[in-house]
């Protein structure tokens, strides 16, 4: 389809490692296609040139951790017709949401020589907690092919084929035998959102939950199974507190075991 006006795409960064936005540069052959169908208006990892807003599609990476960012995200939202978050930080607060379980001032005084220069929020929160988000792309990092699928869906006015079922289903579609059943390896797959194409179980490792909770996850049942597999309470808590430590169901499950 020939499009006379190319949609303006902007990429924004908040507290994050840049890995997700780099996925866009890493889409290989598809990158030229992307560049041909959208007007890249703001993408610091690719170019310093900035085109003024408003933007048709904003991809937002990272979580909100400072008062300044909490304001900046509103400005971005106002300038964006469609706003999509990319990655675990933007969707659940990221690994930095570990601070949510502690007093952040304790860290600041240990890490920084001049804590008085640091202006930070108590919690690392997902973009959704601050502004309306149109779609959330999961993963730490995101799956670059899912990003292409998302862009393709956006450009063609259709629903993206990004499904919220368990990682188990990805193992089964691939034909990977369950590592938990066949090898006794603790795996977060049954409660984790699909999207990675079940990389870890394909290499005889349990799922680490990089894509966060699936739709209606039953973490407590999985935790009982992990306990049967001799996983200690501390390890169980740690498993739920990684890249998606701030997600509602993983947080609740880890806190439940902490209080035991």
């Amino acid at each position: 389809m020939s499009r006379s006006i190319r949609p303006k795409l902007a990429v924004w960064k908040f507290a994050s490692c840049d890995g997700c936005q780099l996925s866009l540069l890493d889409v290989e052959d598809a990158l030229l296609e992307v560049a041909a169908v959208v007007d890249i208006a703001n993408f610091p990892e690719a170019s310093r040139a900035v085109v003024k807003g408003p933007y048709d599609l904003s991809l937002v990476e990272g979580s909100i951790t400072t008062p300044h960012d909490a304001e900046r995200i509103h400005r971005i939202r106002r300038q964006s017709k469609t706003l999509v978050t990319i990655g675990a930080c933007a969707t659940s607060g990221g690994i930095q949401a570990l601070r949510n379980y502690k007093n952040v001032d304790d860290f600041v005084s240990i890490v920084y020589a001049h804590p008085e220069y640091i202006s930070t929020l108590e919690k690392s929160t997902p973009i959704r907690d601050h502004v309306k988000v149109d779609f959330e792309l999961r993963g730490c990092p995101i799956n670059k092919m899912q990003l292409v699928e998302l862009l393709s869906a956006y450009l063609n006015n259709r629903k993206p084929n990004i499904r919220s079922h368990s990682v188990c289903m990805e193992c089964k579609l691939k034909g990977t035998a369950c590592v938990m059943v066949a090898q006794g390896i603790p795996c977060l797959g049954p409660v984790t959102h699909a999207g990675c194409e079940a990389i870890c179980p394909s290499f005889n490792r349990g799922c680490y939950g990089c894509f966060g909770p699936k739709e209606s996850p039953n973490c407590s049942s999985l935790s009982s199974r992990w306990t049967d597999l001799d996983v200690s309470k501390d390890d169980l808590i740690r498993a739920y507190r990684s890249f998606n430590a701030g997600s509602e169901s993983f947080r609740r499950e880890s806190e439940f075991h902490e209080k035991l």
Binding site: H165, C168, C178, N218, S221
Partner: peptide
Amino acid sequence: LKCLSCTN
């Protein structure tokens, strides 16, 4: 309560 709805 037990079912994970994991589809296995």
